[in-house]
Design a protein around this nucleic acid. Structure first.
Lengths: 228, 228
DNA sequence: CGCCGATATGACAATATTGTGACAAAAAAC
DNA sequence: GTTTTTTGTCACAATATTGTCATATCGGCG
Protein backbone atom coordinates (compact mmCIF):
# COMPACT_ATOMS: atom_id res chain seq x y z
CA UNK A 1 0.00 0.00 0.00
CA UNK A 2 2.43 2.64 -1.16
CA UNK A 3 1.14 6.21 -0.93
CA UNK A 4 0.10 7.83 -4.19
CA UNK A 5 1.48 11.27 -4.96
CA UNK A 6 -0.05 13.50 -7.57
CA UNK A 7 2.48 15.93 -9.04
CA UNK A 8 0.98 19.01 -10.65
CA UNK A 9 3.76 20.88 -12.42
CA UNK A 10 3.89 22.33 -15.90
CA UNK A 11 7.64 22.15 -16.44
CA UNK A 12 8.43 18.62 -17.58
CA UNK A 13 12.08 18.45 -16.39
CA UNK A 14 11.21 19.45 -12.85
CA UNK A 15 8.28 17.09 -12.86
CA UNK A 16 10.46 14.21 -13.92
CA UNK A 17 13.11 15.01 -11.39
CA UNK A 18 10.58 14.94 -8.63
CA UNK A 19 8.91 11.86 -10.00
CA UNK A 20 12.15 9.94 -10.15
CA UNK A 21 13.20 10.92 -6.67
CA UNK A 22 9.87 10.09 -5.14
CA UNK A 23 9.41 6.75 -6.83
CA UNK A 24 12.84 5.79 -5.61
CA UNK A 25 11.70 6.36 -2.05
CA UNK A 26 8.70 4.18 -2.61
CA UNK A 27 5.84 6.38 -3.69
CA UNK A 28 3.52 5.79 -6.59
CA UNK A 29 3.63 8.82 -8.82
CA UNK A 30 0.86 10.34 -10.89
CA UNK A 31 1.77 13.31 -13.05
CA UNK A 32 -0.31 16.18 -14.39
CA UNK A 33 0.89 19.20 -16.29
CA UNK A 34 -2.02 21.51 -15.65
CA UNK A 35 -4.94 22.05 -13.35
CA UNK A 36 -7.49 20.53 -15.69
CA UNK A 37 -5.79 17.20 -16.07
CA UNK A 38 -4.86 17.24 -12.41
CA UNK A 39 -8.51 17.45 -11.58
CA UNK A 40 -9.19 14.39 -13.68
CA UNK A 41 -6.36 12.34 -12.24
CA UNK A 42 -7.34 13.36 -8.77
CA UNK A 43 -10.81 11.94 -9.11
CA UNK A 44 -9.67 8.86 -11.00
CA UNK A 45 -6.71 7.87 -8.90
CA UNK A 46 -7.53 9.31 -5.49
CA UNK A 47 -3.98 10.31 -4.49
CA UNK A 48 -2.98 10.41 -0.85
CA UNK A 49 -1.21 13.72 -1.24
CA UNK A 50 -0.61 16.34 -3.93
CA UNK A 51 2.35 18.51 -4.80
CA UNK A 52 1.21 21.57 -6.70
CA UNK A 53 3.23 24.21 -8.48
CA UNK A 54 2.18 27.77 -7.77
CA UNK A 55 2.72 29.21 -11.21
CA UNK A 56 1.16 27.37 -14.06
CA UNK A 57 -0.26 28.47 -17.41
CA UNK A 58 -4.02 28.65 -17.35
CA UNK A 59 -5.51 28.05 -13.96
CA UNK A 60 -2.86 28.78 -11.36
CA UNK A 61 -1.88 26.44 -8.59
CA UNK A 62 -3.43 28.76 -6.04
CA UNK A 63 -6.80 28.66 -7.69
CA UNK A 64 -6.56 24.94 -8.13
CA UNK A 65 -5.78 24.35 -4.47
CA UNK A 66 -8.53 26.66 -3.38
CA UNK A 67 -11.08 24.74 -5.38
CA UNK A 68 -9.73 21.41 -4.22
CA UNK A 69 -9.95 22.50 -0.62
CA UNK A 70 -13.49 23.75 -0.99
CA UNK A 71 -14.92 20.50 -2.25
CA UNK A 72 -15.84 17.99 0.38
CA UNK A 73 -14.73 15.07 -1.73
CA UNK A 74 -11.19 16.31 -2.09
CA UNK A 75 -10.64 18.79 0.73
CA UNK A 76 -9.02 16.21 2.95
CA UNK A 77 -6.26 15.44 0.48
CA UNK A 78 -3.13 17.17 1.80
CA UNK A 79 -1.41 19.60 -0.54
CA UNK A 80 2.14 20.87 -0.69
CA UNK A 81 2.57 24.08 -2.66
CA UNK A 82 5.74 24.71 -4.59
CA UNK A 83 6.86 28.10 -5.75
CA UNK A 84 9.86 29.89 -7.15
CA UNK A 85 9.40 32.86 -4.89
CA UNK A 86 10.27 32.86 -1.25
CA UNK A 87 8.17 35.76 -0.06
CA UNK A 88 6.67 35.45 3.36
CA UNK A 89 3.53 36.84 1.85
CA UNK A 90 3.27 33.97 -0.58
CA UNK A 91 3.64 31.49 2.16
CA UNK A 92 0.77 33.02 4.01
CA UNK A 93 -1.40 33.11 0.93
CA UNK A 94 -0.52 29.53 0.15
CA UNK A 95 -1.48 28.29 3.55
CA UNK A 96 -4.51 30.52 3.49
CA UNK A 97 -6.09 28.78 0.55
CA UNK A 98 -5.66 25.55 2.41
CA UNK A 99 -2.29 24.16 1.45
CA UNK A 100 -0.78 22.03 4.19
CA UNK A 101 2.81 22.93 3.53
CA UNK A 102 4.85 25.19 1.35
CA UNK A 103 8.24 24.81 -0.36
CA UNK A 104 10.44 27.17 -2.30
CA UNK A 105 12.41 26.26 -5.37
CA UNK A 106 15.04 25.16 -5.57
CA UNK A 107 14.65 22.31 -3.16
CA UNK A 108 16.30 18.94 -2.86
CA UNK A 109 14.36 15.79 -3.71
CA UNK A 110 15.18 14.61 -0.26
CA UNK A 111 13.49 17.59 1.32
CA UNK A 112 10.39 17.01 -0.76
CA UNK A 113 10.27 13.39 0.29
CA UNK A 114 10.73 14.44 3.88
CA UNK A 115 7.84 16.87 3.83
CA UNK A 116 5.56 14.41 2.14
CA UNK A 117 6.39 11.85 4.71
CA UNK A 118 5.88 14.21 7.61
CA UNK A 119 2.51 15.33 6.32
CA UNK A 120 1.27 11.84 5.63
CA UNK A 121 2.35 10.86 9.08
CA UNK A 122 0.39 13.51 10.86
CA UNK A 123 -2.67 13.69 8.65
CA UNK A 124 -3.25 10.01 9.12
CA UNK A 125 -3.79 9.83 12.84
CA UNK A 126 -5.33 6.77 14.24
CA UNK A 127 -8.70 7.50 15.70
CA UNK A 128 -9.34 6.42 19.21
CA UNK A 129 -12.32 4.96 20.90
CA UNK A 130 -13.36 4.65 24.46
CA UNK A 131 -12.80 1.30 26.14
CA UNK A 132 -15.56 -1.17 25.50
CA UNK A 133 -16.65 -3.55 28.17
CA UNK A 134 -18.94 -6.50 27.88
CA UNK A 135 -19.44 -9.21 30.47
CA UNK A 136 -16.18 -8.45 32.24
CA UNK A 137 -14.28 -8.50 28.99
CA UNK A 138 -12.71 -5.10 28.39
CA UNK A 139 -11.14 -3.95 25.16
CA UNK A 140 -9.06 -0.78 25.23
CA UNK A 141 -8.34 0.58 21.77
CA UNK A 142 -5.98 3.22 23.14
CA UNK A 143 -3.67 0.85 24.88
CA UNK A 144 -4.33 -1.89 22.38
CA UNK A 145 -5.14 -4.33 25.12
CA UNK A 146 -7.81 -6.76 26.15
CA UNK A 147 -8.59 -7.74 29.71
CA UNK A 148 -10.63 -10.59 31.06
CA UNK A 149 -11.58 -9.51 34.55
CA UNK A 150 -8.49 -7.33 34.75
CA UNK A 151 -6.16 -10.05 33.56
CA UNK A 152 -4.41 -9.09 30.36
CA UNK A 153 -4.93 -11.38 27.39
CA UNK A 154 -2.42 -12.08 24.64
CA UNK A 155 -3.93 -11.40 21.25
CA UNK A 156 -2.16 -11.16 17.93
CA UNK A 157 -2.74 -8.05 15.86
CA UNK A 158 -5.30 -9.68 13.60
CA UNK A 159 -7.14 -11.27 16.48
CA UNK A 160 -7.27 -7.89 18.17
CA UNK A 161 -8.77 -6.31 15.09
CA UNK A 162 -11.34 -9.06 14.75
CA UNK A 163 -12.35 -8.77 18.37
CA UNK A 164 -12.51 -5.01 18.04
CA UNK A 165 -14.79 -5.40 15.07
CA UNK A 166 -16.97 -7.93 16.82
CA UNK A 167 -17.25 -5.93 20.00
CA UNK A 168 -18.38 -2.90 18.05
CA UNK A 169 -20.77 -4.94 15.92
CA UNK A 170 -22.34 -7.42 18.28
CA UNK A 171 -25.44 -9.57 18.00
CA UNK A 172 -25.29 -9.95 14.30
CA UNK A 173 -23.99 -12.52 11.85
CA UNK A 174 -21.21 -11.68 9.45
CA UNK A 175 -20.12 -13.88 6.58
CA UNK A 176 -16.49 -14.72 6.13
CA UNK A 177 -16.38 -12.37 3.18
CA UNK A 178 -17.75 -9.50 5.22
CA UNK A 179 -15.29 -10.15 8.00
CA UNK A 180 -12.47 -10.14 5.48
CA UNK A 181 -13.69 -6.81 4.16
CA UNK A 182 -14.01 -5.19 7.54
CA UNK A 183 -10.92 -6.54 9.21
CA UNK A 184 -8.47 -6.97 6.38
CA UNK A 185 -9.78 -4.36 3.96
CA UNK A 186 -11.75 -4.68 0.78
CA UNK A 187 -9.04 -5.21 -1.76
CA UNK A 188 -7.30 -8.23 -0.49
CA UNK A 189 -7.38 -11.71 -1.85
CA UNK A 190 -7.37 -14.17 0.95
CA UNK A 191 -9.04 -17.52 1.32
CA UNK A 192 -12.27 -17.27 3.26
CA UNK A 193 -11.22 -20.30 5.26
CA UNK A 194 -8.45 -18.18 6.73
CA UNK A 195 -11.12 -16.43 8.74
CA UNK A 196 -11.88 -19.74 10.40
CA UNK A 197 -8.31 -20.06 11.51
CA UNK A 198 -8.21 -16.60 13.02
CA UNK A 199 -11.54 -17.16 14.71
CA UNK A 200 -10.01 -20.22 16.26
CA UNK A 201 -6.99 -18.25 17.43
CA UNK A 202 -9.25 -15.62 18.88
CA UNK A 203 -11.31 -18.21 20.72
CA UNK A 204 -8.17 -19.81 22.03
CA UNK A 205 -6.95 -16.49 23.38
CA UNK A 206 -10.29 -15.87 25.04
CA UNK A 207 -10.36 -19.37 26.52
CA UNK A 208 -11.64 -20.50 28.80
CA UNK A 209 -13.84 -17.82 30.17
CA UNK A 210 -15.06 -16.02 27.12
CA UNK A 211 -15.05 -18.27 24.13
CA UNK A 212 -18.79 -18.67 24.09
CA UNK A 213 -18.98 -15.10 22.89
CA UNK A 214 -17.76 -15.93 19.41
CA UNK A 215 -20.44 -18.09 17.90
CA UNK A 216 -20.53 -20.10 14.71
CA UNK A 217 -23.62 -19.73 12.58
CA UNK A 218 -23.60 -22.68 10.28
CA UNK A 219 -23.94 -21.77 6.64
CA UNK A 220 -23.81 -18.06 7.40
CA UNK A 221 -20.68 -16.97 9.25
CA UNK A 222 -19.87 -15.85 12.77
CA UNK A 223 -21.51 -13.75 15.41
CA UNK A 224 -20.37 -12.03 18.57
CA UNK A 225 -23.04 -12.26 21.20
CA UNK A 226 -23.37 -12.22 24.95
CA UNK A 227 -26.51 -14.30 24.71
CA UNK A 228 -25.85 -17.98 24.33
CA UNK B 1 10.38 24.50 28.91
CA UNK B 2 7.77 27.21 28.98
CA UNK B 3 4.27 26.04 28.16
CA UNK B 4 3.02 26.79 24.66
CA UNK B 5 -0.42 28.34 24.33
CA UNK B 6 -2.28 28.35 21.04
CA UNK B 7 -4.73 31.25 20.79
CA UNK B 8 -7.52 30.75 18.28
CA UNK B 9 -9.38 34.00 17.95
CA UNK B 10 -10.47 35.90 14.87
CA UNK B 11 -10.52 39.38 16.35
CA UNK B 12 -6.99 40.70 16.22
CA UNK B 13 -7.22 43.23 19.11
CA UNK B 14 -8.48 40.65 21.56
CA UNK B 15 -5.93 38.17 20.34
CA UNK B 16 -3.12 40.63 20.89
CA UNK B 17 -4.37 41.60 24.29
CA UNK B 18 -4.37 37.99 25.37
CA UNK B 19 -1.06 37.32 23.71
CA UNK B 20 0.62 40.20 25.45
CA UNK B 21 -0.75 39.33 28.83
CA UNK B 22 0.18 35.69 28.59
CA UNK B 23 3.67 36.17 27.29
CA UNK B 24 4.29 38.51 30.19
CA UNK B 25 3.48 35.70 32.56
CA UNK B 26 5.92 33.43 30.80
CA UNK B 27 4.03 31.50 28.19
CA UNK B 28 5.04 30.96 24.61
CA UNK B 29 2.22 32.19 22.42
CA UNK B 30 1.10 30.86 19.07
CA UNK B 31 -1.70 32.69 17.33
CA UNK B 32 -4.25 31.57 14.79
CA UNK B 33 -7.15 33.53 13.41
CA UNK B 34 -9.29 30.68 12.20
CA UNK B 35 -9.83 26.98 12.60
CA UNK B 36 -7.90 26.00 9.51
CA UNK B 37 -4.69 27.70 10.45
CA UNK B 38 -5.17 26.64 14.06
CA UNK B 39 -5.20 23.05 12.90
CA UNK B 40 -1.94 23.57 11.12
CA UNK B 41 -0.23 25.30 13.99
CA UNK B 42 -1.50 22.67 16.34
CA UNK B 43 0.13 19.88 14.41
CA UNK B 44 3.29 21.80 13.75
CA UNK B 45 3.87 23.26 17.16
CA UNK B 46 2.13 20.84 19.49
CA UNK B 47 0.88 23.42 21.99
CA UNK B 48 0.35 22.42 25.60
CA UNK B 49 -3.01 24.15 25.80
CA UNK B 50 -5.40 25.99 23.51
CA UNK B 51 -7.71 28.94 24.02
CA UNK B 52 -10.47 28.90 21.43
CA UNK B 53 -13.05 31.50 20.62
CA UNK B 54 -16.56 30.17 20.24
CA UNK B 55 -17.69 32.40 17.41
CA UNK B 56 -15.45 32.54 14.39
CA UNK B 57 -16.10 33.03 10.71
CA UNK B 58 -15.98 29.76 8.84
CA UNK B 59 -15.63 26.74 11.02
CA UNK B 60 -16.83 27.65 14.49
CA UNK B 61 -14.84 27.11 17.63
CA UNK B 62 -17.27 24.43 18.72
CA UNK B 63 -16.72 22.39 15.60
CA UNK B 64 -13.02 22.87 15.84
CA UNK B 65 -12.86 21.68 19.40
CA UNK B 66 -15.02 18.71 18.64
CA UNK B 67 -12.70 17.58 15.89
CA UNK B 68 -9.63 18.21 17.99
CA UNK B 69 -11.04 16.12 20.77
CA UNK B 70 -11.89 13.26 18.48
CA UNK B 71 -8.41 12.76 17.13
CA UNK B 72 -5.99 10.71 19.13
CA UNK B 73 -3.02 12.89 18.39
CA UNK B 74 -4.63 16.01 19.71
CA UNK B 75 -7.42 14.96 22.04
CA UNK B 76 -5.33 15.30 25.12
CA UNK B 77 -4.50 18.93 24.51
CA UNK B 78 -6.59 20.89 27.02
CA UNK B 79 -8.91 23.53 25.61
CA UNK B 80 -10.43 26.63 27.13
CA UNK B 81 -13.45 27.94 25.28
CA UNK B 82 -14.13 31.64 25.17
CA UNK B 83 -17.46 33.16 24.32
CA UNK B 84 -19.26 36.47 24.44
CA UNK B 85 -22.43 34.96 25.76
CA UNK B 86 -22.87 33.78 29.31
CA UNK B 87 -25.69 31.34 28.91
CA UNK B 88 -25.58 28.28 31.06
CA UNK B 89 -26.58 26.35 27.98
CA UNK B 90 -23.46 27.40 26.15
CA UNK B 91 -21.30 26.29 28.97
CA UNK B 92 -22.82 22.85 28.86
CA UNK B 93 -22.40 22.61 25.12
CA UNK B 94 -18.85 23.79 25.34
CA UNK B 95 -17.88 21.23 27.89
CA UNK B 96 -19.86 18.61 26.04
CA UNK B 97 -17.68 18.78 22.96
CA UNK B 98 -14.69 18.26 25.18
CA UNK B 99 -13.52 21.68 26.27
CA UNK B 100 -11.81 21.59 29.65
CA UNK B 101 -12.92 25.01 30.79
CA UNK B 102 -15.13 27.85 29.73
CA UNK B 103 -14.83 31.61 30.02
CA UNK B 104 -17.13 34.49 29.19
CA UNK B 105 -16.08 37.77 27.67
CA UNK B 106 -15.20 40.16 28.99
CA UNK B 107 -12.55 38.64 31.17
CA UNK B 108 -9.34 39.96 32.63
CA UNK B 109 -6.01 38.78 31.31
CA UNK B 110 -5.22 37.81 34.82
CA UNK B 111 -8.17 35.49 34.99
CA UNK B 112 -7.19 33.84 31.74
CA UNK B 113 -3.66 33.27 32.96
CA UNK B 114 -5.00 31.84 36.17
CA UNK B 115 -7.24 29.36 34.42
CA UNK B 116 -4.50 28.27 32.07
CA UNK B 117 -2.23 27.70 34.98
CA UNK B 118 -4.85 25.72 36.84
CA UNK B 119 -5.58 23.49 33.91
CA UNK B 120 -1.96 22.89 33.08
CA UNK B 121 -1.31 22.01 36.66
CA UNK B 122 -3.87 19.29 36.67
CA UNK B 123 -3.44 17.95 33.15
CA UNK B 124 0.24 18.45 32.53
CA UNK B 125 2.14 18.16 35.76
CA UNK B 126 5.44 17.89 33.94
CA UNK B 127 5.17 21.45 32.72
CA UNK B 128 5.40 22.57 36.27
CA UNK B 129 8.74 20.78 36.26
CA UNK B 130 7.73 18.70 39.21
CA UNK B 131 9.52 15.36 39.42
CA UNK B 132 7.46 12.47 38.23
CA UNK B 133 7.68 9.20 40.05
CA UNK B 134 6.36 5.85 39.03
CA UNK B 135 7.23 2.52 40.60
CA UNK B 136 10.36 3.85 42.22
CA UNK B 137 11.52 5.37 38.97
CA UNK B 138 11.89 9.12 39.36
CA UNK B 139 12.28 11.56 36.52
CA UNK B 140 13.36 15.11 37.32
CA UNK B 141 12.65 17.48 34.46
CA UNK B 142 14.72 20.37 35.75
CA UNK B 143 17.82 18.45 36.59
CA UNK B 144 17.31 16.36 33.49
CA UNK B 145 18.02 13.23 35.41
CA UNK B 146 16.44 9.90 36.12
CA UNK B 147 16.76 7.84 39.26
CA UNK B 148 15.98 4.24 39.89
CA UNK B 149 15.51 3.95 43.63
CA UNK B 150 17.77 6.95 44.16
CA UNK B 151 20.50 5.61 41.92
CA UNK B 152 21.14 7.89 38.98
CA UNK B 153 20.73 6.40 35.52
CA UNK B 154 22.73 7.35 32.44
CA UNK B 155 20.35 8.42 29.68
CA UNK B 156 21.22 10.21 26.48
CA UNK B 157 19.24 13.36 25.69
CA UNK B 158 16.94 11.62 23.24
CA UNK B 159 16.34 8.72 25.58
CA UNK B 160 15.47 11.20 28.29
CA UNK B 161 12.94 12.92 26.09
CA UNK B 162 11.38 9.64 25.10
CA UNK B 163 11.11 8.54 28.69
CA UNK B 164 9.70 11.91 29.63
CA UNK B 165 7.11 11.59 26.94
CA UNK B 166 6.25 8.07 27.97
CA UNK B 167 6.02 8.86 31.64
CA UNK B 168 3.59 11.67 30.92
CA UNK B 169 1.59 9.60 28.44
CA UNK B 170 1.39 6.18 29.99
CA UNK B 171 -0.85 3.21 29.34
CA UNK B 172 -1.33 3.89 25.72
CA UNK B 173 0.16 2.78 22.43
CA UNK B 174 2.00 5.21 20.21
CA UNK B 175 3.09 4.41 16.71
CA UNK B 176 6.63 5.09 15.65
CA UNK B 177 5.38 8.04 13.65
CA UNK B 178 3.60 9.56 16.63
CA UNK B 179 6.65 9.13 18.80
CA UNK B 180 8.72 10.87 16.16
CA UNK B 181 6.22 13.72 16.12
CA UNK B 182 6.14 14.13 19.86
CA UNK B 183 9.77 13.59 20.70
CA UNK B 184 11.59 14.89 17.65
CA UNK B 185 8.98 17.32 16.34
CA UNK B 186 6.71 17.19 13.34
CA UNK B 187 9.05 18.46 10.71
CA UNK B 188 11.88 16.03 10.72
CA UNK B 189 12.72 13.39 8.23
CA UNK B 190 13.85 10.43 10.19
CA UNK B 191 13.41 6.75 9.58
CA UNK B 192 10.73 5.27 11.75
CA UNK B 193 13.02 2.39 12.58
CA UNK B 194 15.27 4.85 14.34
CA UNK B 195 12.67 4.89 17.06
CA UNK B 196 13.36 1.20 17.62
CA UNK B 197 17.00 1.89 18.19
CA UNK B 198 16.32 4.58 20.72
CA UNK B 199 13.78 2.41 22.44
CA UNK B 200 16.45 -0.19 22.76
CA UNK B 201 18.89 2.33 24.20
CA UNK B 202 16.26 3.46 26.63
CA UNK B 203 15.53 -0.09 27.70
CA UNK B 204 19.19 -0.77 28.11
CA UNK B 205 19.57 2.24 30.34
CA UNK B 206 16.61 1.13 32.42
CA UNK B 207 17.94 -2.40 32.70
CA UNK B 208 17.57 -4.47 34.62
CA UNK B 209 15.00 -3.18 37.01
CA UNK B 210 12.66 -1.22 34.82
CA UNK B 211 12.78 -2.40 31.29
CA UNK B 212 9.42 -4.12 31.48
CA UNK B 213 7.88 -0.68 31.51
CA UNK B 214 8.57 -0.01 27.87
CA UNK B 215 6.46 -2.51 26.01
CA UNK B 216 6.35 -3.46 22.37
CA UNK B 217 2.95 -3.75 20.77
CA UNK B 218 3.44 -5.63 17.56
CA UNK B 219 1.98 -4.01 14.55
CA UNK B 220 1.11 -0.89 16.52
CA UNK B 221 4.07 0.71 18.26
CA UNK B 222 5.26 1.07 21.84
CA UNK B 223 3.60 1.61 25.17
CA UNK B 224 4.75 2.69 28.59
CA UNK B 225 2.86 0.83 31.24
CA UNK B 226 3.28 -0.23 34.81
CA UNK B 227 0.94 -3.11 34.26
CA UNK B 228 2.55 -6.18 32.82
C1' DC C 1 -26.09 -45.67 10.94
C1' DG C 2 -23.61 -43.70 6.99
C1' DC C 3 -23.13 -39.91 4.05
C1' DC C 4 -22.33 -35.13 2.95
C1' DG C 5 -20.95 -30.53 3.28
C1' DA C 6 -19.41 -27.30 6.68
C1' DT C 7 -16.38 -26.11 10.37
C1' DA C 8 -12.42 -26.93 13.73
C1' DT C 9 -7.75 -27.81 14.46
C1' DG C 10 -2.79 -28.62 14.24
C1' DA C 11 1.20 -28.09 11.53
C1' DC C 12 4.16 -25.51 8.57
C1' DA C 13 6.53 -22.49 5.39
C1' DA C 14 6.50 -17.84 3.95
C1' DT C 15 6.29 -13.07 5.57
C1' DA C 16 6.46 -9.33 8.43
C1' DT C 17 7.99 -7.13 12.33
C1' DT C 18 11.16 -6.10 15.85
C1' DG C 19 15.81 -6.51 18.31
C1' DT C 20 20.64 -5.68 18.12
C1' DG C 21 25.48 -4.53 17.19
C1' DA C 22 28.33 -1.78 14.41
C1' DC C 23 29.58 2.41 12.14
C1' DA C 24 30.15 6.94 10.20
C1' DA C 25 28.56 11.51 10.45
C1' DA C 26 27.25 15.27 13.21
C1' DA C 27 27.20 17.77 17.43
C1' DA C 28 28.94 18.95 21.71
C1' DA C 29 32.50 19.34 24.93
C1' DC C 30 37.01 20.40 25.78
C1' DG D 1 41.56 22.34 16.66
C1' DT D 2 40.86 17.72 18.99
C1' DT D 3 38.39 14.51 21.64
C1' DT D 4 34.14 12.67 23.26
C1' DT D 5 29.35 11.96 22.99
C1' DT D 6 25.32 11.50 20.59
C1' DT D 7 22.66 10.36 16.50
C1' DG D 8 20.65 8.19 12.63
C1' DT D 9 21.02 4.36 9.57
C1' DC D 10 22.14 0.01 8.07
C1' DA D 11 22.61 -5.07 7.79
C1' DC D 12 21.57 -8.99 9.88
C1' DA D 13 19.59 -11.90 13.71
C1' DA D 14 15.80 -13.21 16.40
C1' DT D 15 10.78 -13.47 16.82
C1' DA D 16 6.19 -13.31 15.95
C1' DT D 17 2.51 -13.45 12.77
C1' DT D 18 0.09 -14.94 8.68
C1' DG D 19 -2.15 -17.62 5.28
C1' DT D 20 -2.80 -22.15 3.57
C1' DC D 21 -3.10 -26.88 3.68
C1' DA D 22 -4.32 -31.59 5.19
C1' DT D 23 -6.94 -33.86 8.29
C1' DA D 24 -10.22 -34.43 12.03
C1' DT D 25 -14.71 -33.37 13.81
C1' DC D 26 -19.24 -31.90 13.68
C1' DG D 27 -24.21 -31.37 12.39
C1' DG D 28 -27.95 -32.50 9.87
C1' DC D 29 -30.57 -35.74 7.08
C1' DG D 30 -32.23 -39.76 4.62
Amino acid sequence: MTPKVLLVEDEAPIREMMSLALSKVGYTIIEAEDAASARKRMLDDLPDIMVVDWMMPGESGIEFVRSVKSESLTKQIPVIMVTARAEEDDRVRGLEVGADDYMCKPFSPKELAARIKAILRRTNPQLTDAPIEVNGLRLEPDSHRVFANDKSLELGPTEFRILHFFVTHPERVYSRGQILDYVWGSNVYIEERTVDVHIRRLRKALTPAYNGLVQTVRGAGYRFSTRS
